[in-house]
Write a protein that binds this DNA or RNA. Structure first.
Length: 336
DNA sequence: AAATTTCTCAACCGCTTCTGA
DNA sequence: CTCAGAAGCGGTTGAGAAATT
């Protein structure tokens, strides 16, 4: 294997960094900044290539790095984001303050992946998965919502659409079948998209109504056009209904709908949607006051935007599921 | 206790994208 | 528009640590 072009001209050291090298790099960055990484090695007196310096700084020496084990909340967020974004580690890491893309990637590959992949179903979710499946319509999957469900029509989807994955609710009555796979598909059970779903599952989102010309776009922008935004003063999403004609343009497979998120310029990128508190993690069911005390607020969803009309909260059993994953993992504290 | 296997994660590689001349 | 260098990104590697036999 050849070395990178930036390393080929001079003799550069490779491999692990010594504390002395770290100190030189830190001193250099704090003194001069890193306007151009290719000049850093010379300024710092390091026998490294600029690329190596950049990597060392961004992945390890940066003062704002968090270090230490991932919390269950972080793990949950990674799982959720990965289901939407795939292996876009840099994008995922942007939502985890103090974490690097490399760190997230390593965590996924070494810890989460092997927990999810072996059975295709996350065992931690299986308990409420089966209940849920039995209480809504089964789609022939015995394994529940984490089973891959290849959509024969997916290949014909416009490239600028994403499909919002929803972490399944432990509440059977919501009437949501999740056939989420890692291709990011949300299917609403068309026969049971109860207002509960909208009210309690996706408050920031509003699907277009028949008489809402403002949401006429050929794709459905979920709640981000001004007139479609979630109104915190109205605890119901108004005029919710499926526009059957619009729906017909999309994946109307049997009586399942797949709801596209527009990636058109007027709509936010997927990560922006997530950042705006709507990444599909079930939120508090208002009537479940009994659960309230055991809920753990997922502050990372709201921290970027201050107070949000409706803080997302983890139902305790979902967080417990994540914790179960985490507790089954060896501790992943950083070294050095 | 020693050998072997498995796991973790820092670092590297090569490709892509960005930027400025 | 083209090109070159820099930066960013995701996949992969491999050394060291931890776990297992």
């Amino acid at each position: 294997m050849g070395h990178h072009s930036c390393c080929s001209k001079q003799k550069v050291k490779r491999g692990l960094w010594s504390p002395e090298e770290d100190e030189k790099l830190i001193n250099c960055i704090t003194t001069y900044g890193h306007g151009c990484w290719s000049s850093v090695p010379q300024l710092a007196g390091l026998q490294r290539c600029g690329k190596s310096c950049r990597l060392r700084w961004t992945n390890y020496l940066r003062p704002d790095l968090k270090r230490g084990s991932f919390s269950p909340q972080e793990a949950a967020l990674i799982i959720e984001l990965h289901s939407i974004l795939g292996n876009k580690w840099a994008q995922i890491a942007k939502h985890l303050p103090g974490r690097t893309d490399n760190e997230v990637k390593n965590f996924w590959n070494s810890s989460i992946k092997k927990k999810l992949i072996p059975h295709e179903v996350n065992p931690a979710f299986a308990s409420f998965s089966s209940d849920h499946i039995h209480n809504s319509r089964s789609h022939g999957s015995e394994e529940g919502f984490f089973t891959l469900n290849t959509n024969p029509n997916l290949g014909s989807q416009p490239q600028d659409q994403l499909y919002l994955p929803i972490v399944p609710s432990p509440t059977p009555s919501l009437g949501l079948d999740y056939h989420g796979d890692f291709n990011n598909i949300l299917k609403l059970d068309q026969t049971s998209y109860a207002s509960n779903f909208v009210d309690h599952f996706l408050p920031p989102f509003q699907l277009p109504s028949n008489n809402s010309s403002s949401c006429e776009s050929s794709s459905w922008s979920l709640g981000y056009q001004p007139h479609c935004q979630y109104d915190p003063n109205v605890q119901q999403v108004q005029n919710f209904s499926i526009n059957e004609a619009a729906a017909a343009q999309y994946n109307n497979i049997g009586n399942e709908l797949m709801v596209p998120i527009s990636m058109a310029s007027s709509a936010p990128a997927a990560y922006e949607i997530i950042d705006s508190n709507a990444c599909g993690i079930p939120i508090l069911y208002p009537s479940d006051t009994q659960e309230l005390d055991s809920l753990t607020k997922l502050s990372c969803f709201t921290s970027d935007h201050g107070s949000h009309p409706q803080d997302l909260q983890f139902p305790s059993n979902q967080l417990e599921c994540i914790k179960a994953i985490m507790s089954s993992l060896p501790s992943s504290s950083s070294s050095l």
